[in-house]
Design a protein around this nucleic acid. Structure first.
Length: 477
DNA sequence: GTAGGGTTAG
């Protein structure tokens, strides 16, 4: 059986060694992060953290980032460091801690941290409010978010056009374009709304596939004496494709050319991607070739769009031809490029090649596999019933730079329940417990009931089967 | 974290 998460390996538990006072170890953020995750005693952790004298804002940020899936531990770490003799938290560290608290929907912590931040004269900054309002909106509390935005100045942070635009964008990105537009109409005079404000709203309607509303916003801005920019046109162009209005999109693109707009790489990428998604592979290729003739160089994103299109609507071989061509021309592929190719390979059942590309990724500078990479490979192994191999990749993930997230657990556990073999269920149970001890789940009801619900949701397993599974879990513990 | 183009499958 492959290795399970640390919590279950039968290794003897040795307390973490505090760093020596004479020569502290090099600031290795993953070592420190693991130490925090595995510490069970706050006092000894405090001592360990206090002895270490080389805290820097960057190191603290890196550790908080790594503890992103371990909210309570991250906040514990943040709080313990507040009384350090030689280190004080930066505004960015406060923002990060607030973000973590907000993600756990721990609203009390958010406000406590904000008041502490204010008493230390570090903020809150507009960024702090962007974080807080975004989290409230994504928790379904948009009305509350509006109130918070409007009360920013009471917390010592003046609103301006930038923060107004940022907040409109938050509303729009959560598909609340109507609400954003209403708010916008009330305050556009006060904040002196600009082209960016209008673009944000127009994009908001495009995200909801309401291109007529987006056009209306564009008309509105022209009537108020603001000139649409290329970005405005690109937003509409993307909007037509997203709404499945391929013919309208193409006509809009032709209009853009006619009006002598300087069509840029974003416009072309939009069209290549849009045609591809619509299954018009040849048209996508034609536009790709056309842009080079027009003197607009493709970007990595353009290549990614074409490669993805070929993977989905043509075949992965042809996608790899473009990938190799891209390398030959001196482009540096990014994680998305690899993820798209790897997904294409997995989809055609070429798992060995997918793993090869995953290894190639690491050889490229700054292109470590992401959780998307791992999750895709794990998902396809699971779909093939190759759970052993999926767990091997999962192990790689635990020892690497990218920690498993909720999706990862869902994929693995779901596959194990789908097979319904007792040995697999045992592993699934252990993974579930690992998930809870790692606090991958956020919120406060981390009991077996919620586990049941999670499992039932994605496996549609019967309550009887669940009950017998519980017996297995009891044996595990 | 003031706007636009590439990543999940179902």
């Amino acid at each position: 059986m492959p290795n399970l998460p640390n919590k279950f390996s039968k290794l003897p538990k040795t307390p973490p060694k505090p760093p020596s006072t004479t020569s502290p170890p090099p600031p290795d953020c993953s070592t420190i992060a693991n130490l925090i995750i595995n510490s069970e005693n706050p006092e000894s952790l405090t001592q360990t953290l206090q002895t270490f004298t080389q805290w820097t804002p960057n190191l603290v940020q890196a550790i908080l980032k790594r503890l992103w899936n371990h909210g309570p531990k991250a906040l514990q770490f943040f709080n313990l460091l507040e009384n350090h003799p030689s280190y004080t938290h930066s505004a960015a560290a406060f923002d990060h801690a607030i973000d973590i608290g907000a993600r756990m929907r721990d609203y009390k912590t958010i406000w406590t941290l904000m008041y502490r931040m204010r008493s230390r004269k570090l903020g809150p900054t507009p960024k702090t409010f962007a974080i807080i309002t975004e989290r409230y909106v994504s928790a379904g509390k948009a009305d509350k978010a509006v109130k918070i935005f409007l009360s920013m100045h009471e917390h010592g942070c003046q609103q301006d056009l930038n923060s107004f635009n940022a907040f409109l964008d938050v509303l729009c990105k959560s598909k609340r374009a109507d609400m954003a537009y209403r708010l916008f109409k009330i305050f556009r005079g006060r904040f002196r709304a600009d082209v960016i404000s209008y673009n944000i709203i127009a994009n908001g309607f495009c995200l909801k596939k309401q291109t007529p509303r987006a056009l209306e916003v564009m008309k509105d801005m022209v009537e108020r004496g603001l000139e649409p920019t290329l970005t405005t046109y690109n937003i509409l162009l993307k909007g037509y494709f997203r709404a499945g209005q391929i013919k309208e999109a193409w006509e809009f693109f032709l209009q853009m050319k006619k009006r002598k707009l300087e069509i840029d790489v974003v416009s072309y990428t939009t069209v290549v991607h849009g045609f591809g998604v619509a299954g018009e592979v040849e048209k996508a290729r034609k536009v790709f070739d056309e842009m080079i003739g027009a003197g607009v160089l493709p970007s990595v994103a353009t290549y990614n769009a074409l490669i993805q299109v070929l993977c989905k609507k043509d075949c992965v071989e042809n996608a790899i031809v473009v990938f190799e061509d891209m390398l030959r021309k001196g482009y540096m592929p990014n994680a998305t490029t690899y993820n798209v190719v790897i997904r294409g390979l997995c989809h055609e059942g070429k798992m060995d090649m997918a793993i090869e590309y995953m290894d190639r990724m690491k050889d490229d500078y700054d292109c470590e596999p992401t959780f998307q990479t791992f999750n895709v490979v794990i998902r396809y192994y699971c779909d093939d019933g190759e759970i052993e191999k999926a767990l091997e990749v999962f192990d790689k993930m635990n020892s690497g730079t990218c920690l498993p997230n909720l999706d990862t657990y869902n994929i693995l556990i779901g596959a194990m329940f789908a097979k319904k073999k007792s040995a697999d269920l045992l592993v699934a149970g252990k993974l579930l417990i690992g998930m809870s001890s790692n606090r991958v789940l956020t919120g406060d009801q981390l009991d077996l009931i919620s586990f049941y619900n999670i499992i039932a949701n994605f496996t549609r397993i019967s309550p009887d089967q669940l009950a017998s599974t519980k017996k297995i879990w009891d044996q595990v513990e």
